[in-house]
Design a protein around this nucleic acid. Sequence first.
DNA 1: TCCGAAATGATTACCGTTATGATTATGGTC
DNA 2: GACCATAATCATAACGGTAATCATTTCGGA
Lengths: 137, 137
Amino acid sequence: MADASDHPARASRRTRQGEAVLNVVLGSDNFRSAQDIHAELRSSGEAVGLTTVYRHLALLTDEGRLDALQTADGEVVYRRCHSESHHHHVVCRRCGRGVEVALPDLERWAEATASALGYSDVTHTVEIFGVCADCRG
Amino acid sequence: MADASDHPARASRRTRQGEAVLNVVLGSDNFRSAQDIHAELRSSGEAVGLTTVYRHLALLTDEGRLDALQTADGEVVYRRCHSESHHHHVVCRRCGRGVEVALPDLERWAEATASALGYSDVTHTVEIFGVCADCRG
DNA sequence: TCCGAAATGATTACCGTTATGATTATGGTC
DNA sequence: GACCATAATCATAACGGTAATCATTTCGGA
């Protein structure tokens, strides 16, 4: 998993497709699904395969360049990551617009609670969904 | 939805299959998937269709008799609900064993944060995953 | 320019879940 | 107990998002 080569961690090669995927994500402040991104690329004339979109999104997420979260119906959506540190989101259920929020207390609490109960390797998911002002109007 | 007949609120009719599904869930303290439950029923000789299992799980969840949550890979798992009030879980990633935890502060915070940002109709998901002592051993 | 390795992408598989629709079982009534 | 309307069941097939396959293309260093 961890290598340590002199190559950049991301893609060893720069490709038109990789750029295109990245650009779509960077060009939007909303959480977008892989298929959504794929559709946008296609309709804007960029020929990129769905597989490739998935691959790049996964890569970018691994690198911490993108945030990913699951919507209520199990779809994974992506957005560019704004802050280095761990955080969560308030996400609009309709348009996917999201705001990052930090919750240091929660992080500590989650970890502490779980270990107190004997659980190790603790991870947590915290997401808040709502309808944003624009979509409500 | 809520009636108050002498029959259990659950299904309008009592059926062998409904009982069977309920029994499996009540008989385990772990979060179980629909397919898992279905497999157990089958292997224990109870002939119950997968569709039926899904339907009963959905019904029981609607009634608040079961807790449901999505695992990291999008699968929905169920367990009997122990407490009436809103709560979250610390769940073992391996065996599905879970502990209920209440987080009144978090609830309030989530709602407040989201509305302050202009979001309405706020819901949240908070789940904590780890590996329990037994599974680690 | 050449070449090996990496990336791509059409296609197919996968997996959990849900819709369909014919069949069966339930429970109130006579 | 018999009857019947209706709810419940369940095999099957569809669905939707995601991941694997693998032949082909592209990259970029020599």
